[in-house]
Design a protein around this nucleic acid. Structure first.
Length: 426
RNA sequence: GGCGCCGUGGCCGAGUGGUUAGGCAGAGGCCUGCAAAGCCUCGUACAGCGGUUCGAGUCCGCUCGGCGCCUCCA
C-alpha cells in the first residue's frame, strides 16, 4: 500500500505486510461539541486501521485528546465554570458523538493532562540539549537551532513572523513549550520551571512517542495542522534526534459555503447535529465519497446524495437482483492500496451483487449495518398480511388504506410478483 | 506577497498518454391495480489559450477562477 506524504510530497510505500504499523492522529481540543469537520480525521484513522488490519498488519492507532489549552481556559472563564469541569464535559461529548459513528474506538486515546510527566521530561531534554530555553517560568523552543524548520510546511525560515509575540522570546518565531500559570487559569501543574501547563504542540510529540516510540509510520490530522502544529511537533522530536513520523497524512478540510468549516469562523455544523439529521451511515458514505486528501463541500445536497447511495447499497441486500458478473475483490483492494482511494473503492462496491463480498467491504468502513435485513415486528407483519389479502380480492381501496397505515408505522410495502416485501423507512 | 492544493457532463466524483468509471438528479421503457424498488436504454464532459506527441482530461508553459496555510482551528 502507498500513501501520499505531505513532507516529501509524493507517494510513499508502506513496508510489506505483515508487520507493525503505528498511527498517530491529532484529535480535537475539547471545550465544546466537535463539528463534522472534526470527524474526518477520526473516521479516516479508523478506516485506515481497519484496512491495514484486514491486509495483515498489526496496527496501533493512537488518537489524542487535547484537554488543556488557551481555548479551554478562555471558554471556562466565559462560562464561569472550572476549566477541568469544562474539558471533562467536552471530552464526554467527544466520546458520545464519536461513539455514535459506530466505528469502535482507537486503540489508545490519551489525554494531554494525563501525560504531564512525559511532557515535562520531553521539555527538560530539549532544555538540556539547548534546543529550548527558560524565560521567567516559560520555556520556548528555539527555532533558530533547528535548521530543518519549515520543511513540512514549505515555509522559509527567514520569512516567518510569529503573530504570537512575547518579550520573553529570543526570536519571535520561537514557540512555547511550557507556559507559566496566568491569573485567570484555574488549573496548573508543577514543573522545574514553576507552575504552568504545556504549550500547544508539545503534548502531541509526548503522547505520540509515549505510546508509539520515537519513530512511527503514519501521522495524521487536518491539513490546517500542517503549520504550525505539525511543523512544531516535528521540530521538537527531530531536535532530540528522533525520526518521528515516516508519513504525514493530512486530510482535506470540509467546506461550508466555499469556506473552511472552523470554529473561529463560526460556520460550523456539529457532528451531533449531522448524526441526528442524517444518521451515521449517510455521513460515512459522504466521507467515503471524497478523496481523503482533498477539500470537500459539506451541504444538504451532498448529504442527500450520500444518503441515496447508502440506500442503494442497502437495497442490494433486500431485493432479488439480476445475476451480475462475479465481483472482483482485487479491484476494490487495489483502489484502497493506492493512496486509500475510497471514491474508487465505493464505485467498485456499487457494481457488486455478491452479498458476502459487499458485506466484507462494508465491514472495513463500519457499514455492515447496511447489510442487515429488517425484520418487521409481528403487528407490522400482520398489517401487511391483511393488505396482501385485500389485494388478492382486489379490494384496492382497503389495500391502499392499509399501506398508508404501514407507512405511518414506518414501513414501506414493496409488492412483488409472488408476494410482498417490507422495508423499514428511514 | 510567500508556500501548497485544485478546476471533469445538471450535481458529487474516479481516471498508469490510446477501448465503459461509479453514484445522485432527470427522461423513456420493462414490471405493476397503483406505488416503490429493481432491471434496460439515454449524457460523447474534461476552465481557456498555446506547446510536446502518431495520439492529451492525463505531460509542459501561460492566462483565468476557486480553496487552504502563512494567526487559534481536524
Amino acid at each position: 500500500m502507498r500513501l501520499y506524504d505531505s513532507l516529501t510530497r509524493g507517494l510513499v510505500e508502506l513496508p510489506p505486510s505483515p508487520g507493525p504499523i503505528r498511527i498517530y492522529v491529532c484529535g480535537s481540543t475539547v471545550y465544546q461539541r466537535i463539528h463534522v469537520g472534526n470527524s474526518r480525521p477520526f473516521v479516516l484513522g479508523m478506516w485506515v486501521r481497519n484496512w491495514l488490519r484486514h491486509t495483515g498488519y498489526e496496527v496501533t492507532f493512537v488518537h489524542n485528546i487535547t484537554d488543556v489549552d488557551d481555548k479551554v481556559y478562555a471558554e471556562a472563564v466565559e462560562q464561569g465554570v472550572p476549566s477541568r469541569q469544562l474539558s471533562e464535559r467536552a471530552t464526554a461529548w467527544f466520546f458520545e458523538d464519536t461513539n455514535d459513528l459506530g466505528l469502535g474506538r482507537p486503540d489508545l486515546e490519551p489525554r494531554a493532562t494525563e501525560t504531564i510527566p512525559e511532557i515535562v521530561q520531553f521539555i527538560q531534554e530539549l532544555v538540556d540539549g539547548e534546543k529550548a530555553y527558560v524565560a521567567n517560568g516559560d520555556v520556548y523552543f528555539s527555532v533558530a537551532r533547528f535548521p530543518e524548520y519549515g520543511r513540512l510546511s514549505g515555509a522559509r525560515l527567514e520569512e516567518m513572523i510569529s503573530q504570537e509575540t512575547s518579550d520573553l522570546k529570543q526570536d519571535q518565531r520561537d514557540f512555547a513549550l511550557w507556559k507559566s500559570q496566568k491569573p485567570h487559569e484555574d488549573a496548573a501543574w508543577d514543573s522545574p520551571w514553576g507552575p504552568g501547563r504545556p504549550g500547544w504542540h508539545i503534548e502531541c510529540s509526548a503522547m505520540a512517542e509515549k505510546f508509539l516510540g520515537p519513530e512511527f509510520e503514519i501521522h495524521g490530522g487536518g491539513n490546517d495542522l500542517r503549520f504550525p502544529h505539525h511543523e512544531n511537533e516535528l521540530a521538537q522530536s527531530a531536535s532530540l534526534g528522533h525520526a518521528f513520523a515516516k508519513i504525514w497524512m493530512h486530510n482535506g478540510m470540509l467546506e461550508l459555503d466555499q469556506a473552511k468549516m472552523s470554529k473561529s469562523l463560526g460556520n460550523v455544523v456539529t457532528l451531533r447535529n449531522v448524526l441526528d439529521v442524517w444518521g451515521r451511515e449517510s455521513l460515512l458514505v459522504f466521507h467515503l465519497s471524497g478523496a481523503w486528501s482533498k477539500p470537500v463541500d459539506f451541504d444538504d445536497d451532498v448529504m442527500q446524495q450520500a444518503s441515496a447511495r447508502a440506500d442503494r447499497l442497502r437495497d442490494v441486500f433486500r431485493g432479488i437482483h439480476q445475476p451480475a458478473p462475479a465481483g472482483s475483490w482485487e479491484r476494490f483492494s487495489d483502489a484502497l492500496d493506492d493512496d486509500f482511494n475510497t471514491p474508487a473503492a465505493l464505485a467498485v462496491m456499487h457494481e457488486w451483487r455478491d452479498h458476502e463480498l459487499l458485506r466484507r467491504a462494508l465491514g472495513v468502513f463500519g457499514l455492515k449495518s447496511l447489510a442487515e435485513n429488517d425484520e418487521a415486528p409481528p403487528e407490522v407483519a400482520a398489517l401487511a398480511q391483511r393488505r396482501q389479502a385485500a389485494r388478492e380480492v382486489r379490494d384496492f381501496e382497503e389495500a391502499d388504506r392499509l399501506r398508508a397505515e404501514l407507512v405511518e408505522a414506518g414501513w414501506e410495502m414493496r409488492d412483488e410478483t409472488n408476494g410482498h416485501r417490507l422495508v423499514r423507512l428511514r
